[in-house]
Design a protein around this nucleic acid. Sequence first.
DNA 1: TATTATACCAAACGATTGTTTGCTTTCGCA
DNA 2: TGCGAAAGCAAACAATCGTTTGGTATAATA
Lengths: 227, 227
Amino acid sequence: MVDSGGGSWRMPGTGGSRMRARNGKRPAAAVAVGTAKQRTMRDEILDAAAGLIVSEGYDACTMRAVAALVDMKAGSLYYHFRSKDEIVEEILNQGIETLYVCVAEALQRVPEDASFAHRLSTAVGTHVASLVGKDQTYMHVYEHLPPVIRRRSRRMRERYARLWHDLFADGIARGEVDGIHDLQLLVPYFLGGLNRVPEWIRASGAGSERIAQLATTALLDGISVRQ
Amino acid sequence: MVDSGGGSWRMPGTGGSRMRARNGKRPAAAVAVGTAKQRTMRDEILDAAAGLIVSEGYDACTMRAVAALVDMKAGSLYYHFRSKDEIVEEILNQGIETLYVCVAEALQRVPEDASFAHRLSTAVGTHVASLVGKDQTYMHVYEHLPPVIRRRSRRMRERYARLWHDLFADGIARGEVDGIHDLQLLVPYFLGGLNRVPEWIRASGAGSERIAQLATTALLDGISVRQ
DNA sequence: TATTATACCAAACGATTGTTTGCTTTCGCA
DNA sequence: TGCGAAAGCAAACAATCGTTTGGTATAATA
């Protein structure tokens, strides 16, 4: 597999060269394809591991605990994955990719002549919705990982941040966003805050749409009373 | 200090009943006082552990690693602390208390008739400065801890959040903040974003004051162009 | 039906974890 | 000078970690 820096994570529906267990050797679980059942089991394991990381933390996400959630023994996980690291890496890559695609496609569906406020609202709504619906998402998982592992998804995180950077830059170009703001600072400011959505929900009990609306209007108009 | 349910963590400068090692038994490290040298060593250990958690994560913060940083052996740490949990708990409580006191006192120094913008700016500046200066602060440490341990500082976190809640509520009462915003949602929104400051710094390289200023004006006025 | 790949288990591996124990060194104080 | 407390070390403890190994049913294939 040719892999120039992008990581070798699984891409749903991607058909590549078939993997075979030759000479009685163990299958190379890192390769992206396999039996239909094998693929299903892989996803179940990934879900179990992700859920465990989010609810109990990375420490508690042991191979034995993951295996128990999918009714297996720890050693059997190695039929589907090469290592624990591979599981976490796949969770990370799959999650950030999904998030990126969702927001990017949502933005592309917005008409060319739409206002910045409209575009921002769309992006925020998509981002927040993806964080609220499922229990185990990229952002949920990410914050529980030790720094060494976090760094591995740096590239894809930056790619996602660039999506937002371009959105704001476009807003400035259109004259709808105040150009005095340093985007290098504004983007992580806003995005960083947005990723704490799960916490806001626990604290306020608010729904997805209401949260998205607050974040959008607060950023656009501020909270000061206009005179 | 009256603290119902807050635990029995160490308070710098607090003189209590003297601890003695009676009958040749090990000293009860959890009690708040001791020799001057003992207190110094405790702080050194706490610093080492906190630094390790921030830079390498909770997993990497082993007793042996902490001990090595203060030129000791793992077992010797148990002369100063009852357990690893006690170390982490003390880091957490000491950190959040310091943060609370700093912001609270800064707000008290603001004149009674000052505007909300002034008060907000003060609070944000203090909060951000405390996050930027030191490497190991409460917020830095907190985000690397497993959920089980995080929950232990919930009470004090809520106490700190209430400080900000009151600040915004006061702004609304003065008619300077738009009352349509649900504070149950606005406070975690803003505070959650503010705590990612370390990330903003890594991403933008900006300084403490500039970050505080962006956060303040962005929240107050928004980023839209006024017509 | 014979064979082969699939998908798992039981059991162990060495390494590392937090913690305990008994012993030693250091040092202030009488 | 001698004594007791303070402070720390060496070595082990059971538990748990990720991982490996050899083996075994099940299902597909020829």
